[in-house]
Amino acid sequence: MNNFTYTTAGSITAALQHTKRHPQAMYIAGGTNLLDLWKYNLLHPQTLVDLNGVPGYHTIEAKEGGGLQLGALVTNAATAYHPLIEQRYPLLSKAILAGASAQIRNMATNGGNLLQRTRCYYYYDGDVPCNKREPGTGCSAIKGYNRIHAILGASEHCIAVFPSDMCVALAALEAVVQITGQQGKRSIPFADFHRLPGNAPEKDNALQAGDIITSIDLPAKEFAHHYSYLKLRDRHSYAFALVSVATALELEGNEIKEARIALGGVAHKPWRIPEAEQLLQGKPATAESFAQAADKLLEGAQGYPHNQFKIELAKKAIIRNGLMALHPETQLPGAQPSA
């Protein structure tokens, strides 16, 4: 909780110039995770560059040829309740509303949601070893209490999971992240935005120093009719997922034309295996079909002493959520299992 200076940026260019001159500066938008981490003495910004006043990124716009552009500075709540999202991308709305609390969703921005740090206990405790926080110090979670940790894509250096719900839906919807950086603009497909820990767990995503997320673009495929977000956790709301599943289906009768499944709470990024989805193509939308997809999605899953259950739970959640997606109207508040 060091002292810092504060400045507002009037444009992306001005913000980029600032961080170019001051590499220790950090951008702030919603601030809900940044200030949380700063108060735990885990982030030490020298300057905060407030992006909220930058015009042009506060709206949700329909794109030509379908699709939507979600301004990076739109709040999570405004996104979830936006008529275009509620009607056309309800999976995204459901996932956002399963995360955090109403107050936090009113503050947190779309750009910031992608940049949350893990909720691993050991990352959050500045006094214990953690490779994500201090590379090379070791991973306390592997030999410690790892109920909330990864079963997929982890490494010997880090078994933390990425905590976002919104991003699980964005992964399923194949969103594209638009970025403006010191070298200009670029876009990154959602699957490539977050990364696995490997031997550099300190790096959560593909952003480079100074990069600003300007929007998250949704492709034309909406999955507005058959979708479900299921979140399993230690209380019915306001808790991070042990396992969550975003499922989107395109059906013809009971036959699956196209499927998307992404998992949250199980890896360092939203977990998606396109091959698992391809297995569902042309199959009936039944528990058996979803079970096959689940096996593919969970291939190579490895549990630790306290989170072995996640493998079975994830499989059952994928099956159940597939069935729930057939009847989106049965979904309960808080993304709970259907009644």
Binding site: L35, N52, N106
Partner: peptide
């Protein structure tokens, strides 16, 4: 009129 958490925002903001 929007509910927010006053602990997670800066006064200057």
């Amino acid at each position: 009129d929007k509910r927010i958490l006053s602990c997670l925002t800066l006064a200057v903001m």
